[in-house]
Amino acid sequence: MHELLRSYGRTLTGVFITLTAFWMLIMILLPQAFMIEHSLWWIDRDDQLGMRIDRAYSDMGLLEFDLGQADTPEGKADIQERIDGLKADIAAMEAEETAPPKHYGFDNYTKMSALHFEIFLKSIGYSLAVTILALIVCYPIAFTIAKLSTPNKAALLMLGLIVPYAINELLRVYAWLMILDYQGVINSLLAWLGLVSFEDKSWVPFLEYSGSVFVALIYAYVLFMIFPIYNTVETLDRNQLEASEDLGAGVIRTHLRVVIPHAKPGIAVGCIMTFMLSVGSYSVPQIMTRGKSGDWFSQLIYRQFFESQNWNSGAAYSFSLVLVCLGFILIMMKVFKVGIRDIAK
């Protein structure tokens, strides 16, 4: 604090602190806290309540009629007592109808239906597969560009990576929709080969399989794996590679003992980003399934918010996603022995 004050004076230091506090509280911590709080309660709406209120009113009508008919004071008092009791009941029920009781607990998490839980696991499983496959595909590319290319070639290849990376995710996924569509590129190819026919609709319904979402997820997020790995491999001294070779290590051994240990932070970041983007992707399943194949977890969340208007369970699903990502980050940090400072660079 002293250093900041000395260099920048009170006003500027105050501005820095205020802005950072605003960012931290209003834009990060409080929204998260409110989301968690929202996930911990639910409103108990009784479907039968309206009917019960109606019945109580008709009962009261009968009692009021009886009251007029009653001839002894004891009978009158008795009926009056029942009417008062009924009135109190109605008032209580109407209060409940306008402000249904709020319950706190973990029900939004524990009451996730079997189907939703299955979708939850499916989304995580596919995202893990996307991450692993992306790592296998990207590592050789990143290494080739960083260490085996001349500077000019490397610049050109980087350009080739930046262009698709910078094009909107929706449009990139859309390209795959066109390829896998009923009368898309692949089916047309198959038709040309005589394997399927458009006339009798014997095309392969790729879009009805979860696999098509998987293919598009890889395509959409594969580049988030390349750049972090490239950045770390690039800083590796070429002499180390030569030394390793001179000492008799083969290609695989050099990678296992020299390149990969050096590239660890990059690999960890690449995996974290790819996994997080895949598991939380709303765009890819939305475009690829178009309601034809089953929902993904992100789509379930969207529905909770904008279709069934159940923000409480939506918040619970959303926080479950945060926990999954947090767990994945911690595992990666442990496996690759990197700190938080290495991750976000």
Partner: peptide, 26 residues
């Protein structure tokens, strides 16, 4: 310092939909 750093970079590490949702609720 490290805690503050972790909080400030956390929006990069959690899914984008969660950022939208928490903002909407807040």
């Amino acid at each position: 310092n490290n805690l503050l750093y972790a909080i400030l970079v956390s929006p990069l590490l959690i899914p984008g939909i969660v950022l939208g949702i928490s903002t909407l609720i807040f």
